[in-house]
Amino acid sequence: MAGDRDRFSTATRLKVLGEQTAARVYRSQSRRQARRPRLTGRAAILLMVLCTLVVALAYPMRQYVSQRNDIADQRQQVRDAKARVEQLRDEKARLQDDAYVERLAREHLHYVRPGETSYTVIDPDARKRAPRDRGATDRPWYTNLWDGVDTADRAGDR
């Protein structure tokens, strides 16, 4: 029995010794982790390099995006200008046709061919709608034009 007690006490002693050793190792690791800074030197340098890159690239990236937008705007203006040029070319081609020019002169300038009689239909309600232009429909268009120029000239003298 004495051997059992020695053996048991040796096993118990080893167990206790193992627990004490484990506790010391755990306390030692806890102290090291508590003393160790969370940010190591390498991590701090890496963080500083990343921040520097972000700051260094922020302005050029903003410029790049801004210039891309400007380029897109310029391309849209070019497309609009090309469309306008096509419209003007079509208008120029139509104006080369004498029949089209004659039709425009008849519609807008009230021209008539020799021997034709021109009739102007006056809306009876026109005087009610525009009392300030009384008599403007009774006069030729060029008289109204010169009256407008004279009115604008008088307004500029004030």
Results as ranks from 00 to 15, higher is better:
K15F: 13
K15H: 12
V16L: 14
L17T: 14
E19Y: 06
E19G: 10
T21R: 00
T21L: 05
A22H: 08
A22C: 05
A23K: 06
V25L: 13
R27C: 06
Q29H: 00
Q29Y: 02
Q29S: 03
Q29L: 07
S30A: 13
A34T: 15
R35V: 11
R35M: 13
R36V: 03
R36W: 01
R36K: 00
P37S: 11
R38G: 10
L39N: 12
L39F: 11
T40H: 08
T40N: 11
G41P: 02
R42I: 14
R42F: 09
L46A: 15
L46M: 15
L47T: 09
M48D: 13
M48I: 09
V49N: 02
L50V: 09
C51L: 15
L53A: 07
V54Y: 10
V55L: 08
A56I: 12
A56Y: 08
L57W: 01
A58D: 08
Y59S: 11
P60M: 01
P60R: 04
Y64A: 14
Y64T: 07
Y64F: 14
Y64N: 12
V65S: 14
V65G: 11
V65A: 15
S66L: 05
Q67T: 04
Q67S: 05
Q67A: 01
R68L: 15
N69K: 15
N69I: 11
D70I: 01
I71Q: 08
A72H: 10
D73F: 15
D73A: 14
Q74E: 07
R75V: 10
R75A: 12
Q77K: 07
V78H: 02
K82D: 06
R84D: 12
R84S: 12
L88H: 09
L88Y: 05
L88D: 09
R89Q: 14
E91G: 05
A93Y: 04
R94H: 06
R94P: 06
L95V: 05
L95N: 10
L95F: 12
Q96I: 07
D98S: 13
D98H: 10
D98I: 01
A99N: 10
E102P: 04
R103I: 02
L104I: 04
R106D: 03
E107M: 02
H108V: 01
L109W: 00
L109A: 03
V112E: 03
R113I: 00
R113G: 02
R113F: 03
P114E: 10
P114D: 08
G115S: 05
T117R: 03
S118V: 07
S118H: 08
Y119P: 02
V121C: 05
V121W: 00
V121N: 04
V121R: 08
I122R: 06
I122H: 06
D125H: 15
A126E: 14
A126K: 13
A126H: 13
K128V: 05
P131S: 07
P131C: 04
D133I: 10
R134L: 04
T137V: 12
D138H: 08
R139K: 13
P140A: 15
W141L: 13
W141T: 13
